[in-house]
Design a binder for these strands. Structure first.
Length: 266
DNA sequence: ATGGTCGCTTGGCGA
């Protein structure tokens, strides 16, 4: 089973890019973030025609928005609000597969956090930290636990030194500050999570999934960050047989600033 | 230290 995650930055604008990615990768399940569209205007028919009849969608006008597209049936679709905001940053579903027992899938779009890494001066950063804490506490409080779980999304944090182009220069930049990487670690250990991508691609090796639009040539200095992640539960750890990023897409016409990340479960 | 670019929507916000 192949599971991909991609911050698409407008699903309507990049439908043809998504179709190409589908042709190239053939994922069984695709999780999108920043769809930037209401559910009424979500291109359901087009995506169904591309081979994904099972869809879980949580969108709003202009901002945020998450979606799960699947070749396999999805059950128990849940859209959750965090920090008392109905801002479409999380959707979960159970993938009904015949090879594995059911897999509980969580698709997150964690707040970016603004520019200043100080929760007192910057309410967006405060929101990001509060969001992480709330998800962490929620995971700890869950009593009914599904065995097989996968968590994906644009987590907007690059946890490892090798997840950014310069560890030293980014320590005070939102996405790589110690307070964030620590919060992400707490979130990770509050559940059964293993970083599936880093199980395949060694933690020493630089790996990025995002490059800013604010650069004439993103390849020149390769100033990227790994903001997009796929985690699996311990129960699936041994099943992770591949993980990769589709870096070519960043050079396509009208690219998203994020690239797709994919794992294979065997 | 500053400004650089996108997308949605048409001014300004969020990234």
């Amino acid at each position: 089973m192949k599971i991909s995650t991609w911050n698409i930055n407008s699903v309507r604008l990049r439908l043809s890019s998504l179709a190409q990615i589908i042709r190239d990768i053939c994922p069984d399940v695709i999780c999108l973030q920043e769809t930037k569209v209401t559910n009424e205007l979500f291109p359901s028919k087009e995506l169904s025609a591309l081979g994904y009849p099972y869809q879980a969608v949580a969108g709003m006008k202009s901002y945020n928005g998450v979606a799960i597209l699947s070749r396999l049936p999805l059950t128990k679709i849940i859209v959750r609000d965090w920090c008392k905001k109905a801002d479409c940053r999380h959707i979960s579903a159970i993938i009904q597969d015949t090879t594995f027992s059911p897999i509980e899938l969580h698709n997150f779009y964690i707040p970016a956090g603004g520019d200043t890494p100080n929760p007192i001066e910057n309410e967006k950063f405060a929101h990001k930290l509060a969001f992480l804490k709330e998800v962490t506490e929620w995971q700890k409080s869950r009593t009914k636990k599904t065995k097989n779980m996968v968590l994906v999304g644009d987590l907007n944090i690059a946890p490892l030194p090798s997840d950014v182009w310069s560890h030293k220069q980014l320590l005070k930049v939102v996405s790589h500050t110690p307070i964030e990487t620590e919060a992400l670690k707490q979130l990770q250990i509050s559940g059964p999570w293993v970083d599936a991508v880093r199980k395949i691609i060694p933690p020493q090796k630089n790996l990025f999934t995002w490059w800013s639009y604010r650069s004439k040539d993103w390849t020149k200095n390769n100033r990227g960050r790994r903001l997009d992640h796929i985690w699996v539960s311990e129960s699936l750890k041994q099943n992770v047989s591949d993980a990769n990023v589709y870096q070519d897409t960043r050079s396509w016409e009208r690219p998203s600033d994020h690239i797709p990340v994919t794992i294979t479960l065997s």
